[in-house]
Amino acid sequence: MDEITSSEAAARLIDNELSRLDPDANRPTNVISTEGLNLSFGGKSILTGVNMEFTRGTITALIGPTGSGKSTFLRTINRMNDKVPSFKHEGDVKLDGESIWGSNQDLLTLRRRVGMLFQRPNPFPMSIRDNVVAGVRAHRIAKGKQLDVVAETRLREVGLWDAVKDRLGDSPFRLSGGQQQLLCLARALAVGPEVLLLDEPTSALDPLSTESVELLMRAMTPALTIIVVTHNLGQARRVSDKTMFFYEGRLVEHGDTAQIFERPREASTDRYVNGLMG
């Protein structure tokens, strides 16, 4: 008994020490929150009344049938929808307590802090190395020899280094689809985001590549907060801490992933997670 108590005390001590070192300790627990968010394109409502908080360092899965508004929701968070002329939003999205549409919010900095990975791998038409450091260059985070270090670090981080270290100058389109997606992940990580938005990141990948992306997602938290749209319910169940279920333009239900899948409160959630509705 004594042993357990003392080890618990030690754990508490370490926890306290860690939280003192943690740069995020004094920030709001919720890295992103939405308040009464309504989204529409050309007067057609896509999503209404979303109030949601995303806890720092967690993985949240966004599930729901096609057209339920989850991708639109995701693309709103880094303001990718803003350029669509008919896009309108009401309510607010806050990053660290500040509105993402606020006048003191710089769009380019916002997108550096909130990274995104797309459904289809989209490397740029430049060498593998240049792809990894493309964002770093644009934001002038590093230059010259430092870029090589950044490239190696990030490629190691996503487990691609050994496969590409001898051909950093090659075209990224010679890589397999899974490797290309990992390269895009390395590119997104290189600018040091706090939040990563993943839009069906593995739907174009084979099972092995999917697994490595999922393992990486787990490894990247709690340093990073991840929001992932997925049609793969197994994936949502495997990787996420929280799950949000969207249906017909509404956030029907959200909660711990286990609860959503095992004890859904709403009938539509139940039907969807059990495969009775696609």
Partner: peptide, 19 residues
């Protein structure tokens, strides 16, 4: 998807155009 990738990384429109 090149444009989207560049925008999502926070590249400015001018930088994206040039690079």
């Amino acid at each position: 998807n090149y444009r989207e990738g560049a925008e999502a990384l926070g590249m400015s429109p001018g930088y994206m155009l040039r690079r």
